[in-house]
Amino acid sequence: MHCHKDPDQLFNLKTDPKELQNLAENEEHQERLAAFQREALERWDNDVLTEAVLISQRRRRLVVSALNKGKKKSWDHQPFFDSSEMYMRNHIDLDDLETRSRFPKVD
């Protein structure tokens, strides 16, 4: 893993699947680490990613702050609807069912 603000991390997942031994500072792995760093810099714009993460964090903090005021509301949205009219049922005429499934809906 490579991030400008954090130390690099390099693990051998075959011999260390729990990622307990960071090989990034090991001399014998410097060439491989440098290759991974080059690839990461070619593939991703770190400044753009960092800004996107910061914006996302600010938005989530705002939502949490709003949810903690007034009546507590669950973070998860649970829509309530009558599922008996959503799925193929024997009580619905096939022509009516097909008409309902068309987009845009035809009245």
Results as ranks from 00 to 15, higher is better:
residue 34 A to S: 08
residue 30 Q to G: 06
residue 18 K to M: 07
residue 18 K to F: 04
residue 32 R to P: 00
residue 86 M to N: 07
residue 35 A to H: 03
residue 5 K to R: 14
residue 3 C to T: 10
residue 3 C to S: 11
residue 1 M to G: 05
residue 4 H to T: 08
residue 16 D to W: 02
residue 73 K to T: 11
residue 100 R to G: 05
residue 23 L to G: 05
residue 26 N to K: 11
residue 90 N to E: 13
residue 44 W to R: 10
residue 65 S to R: 12
residue 30 Q to K: 11
residue 3 C to D: 14
residue 58 R to D: 13
residue 21 Q to Y: 07
residue 80 F to R: 15
residue 56 S to Q: 11
residue 14 K to G: 04
residue 4 H to V: 04
residue 55 I to N: 12
residue 44 W to C: 06
residue 16 D to G: 08
residue 43 R to N: 07
residue 77 H to V: 13
residue 53 V to C: 11
residue 6 D to R: 15
residue 21 Q to M: 06
residue 90 N to H: 10
residue 24 A to D: 00
residue 69 K to W: 01
residue 55 I to W: 03
residue 93 D to W: 02
residue 77 H to S: 13
residue 41 L to E: 15
residue 76 D to S: 14
residue 20 L to W: 01
residue 83 S to I: 04
residue 23 L to I: 08
residue 38 R to E: 07
residue 101 S to P: 01
residue 14 K to P: 00
residue 86 M to V: 09
residue 79 P to D: 03
residue 16 D to E: 05
residue 28 E to C: 05
residue 54 L to E: 15
residue 66 A to T: 03
residue 18 K to I: 01
residue 86 M to D: 06
residue 50 T to C: 08
residue 58 R to K: 15
residue 95 D to P: 00
residue 29 H to P: 00
residue 29 H to Y: 15
residue 35 A to Y: 03
residue 44 W to Q: 12
residue 101 S to W: 09
residue 52 A to G: 11
residue 66 A to L: 11
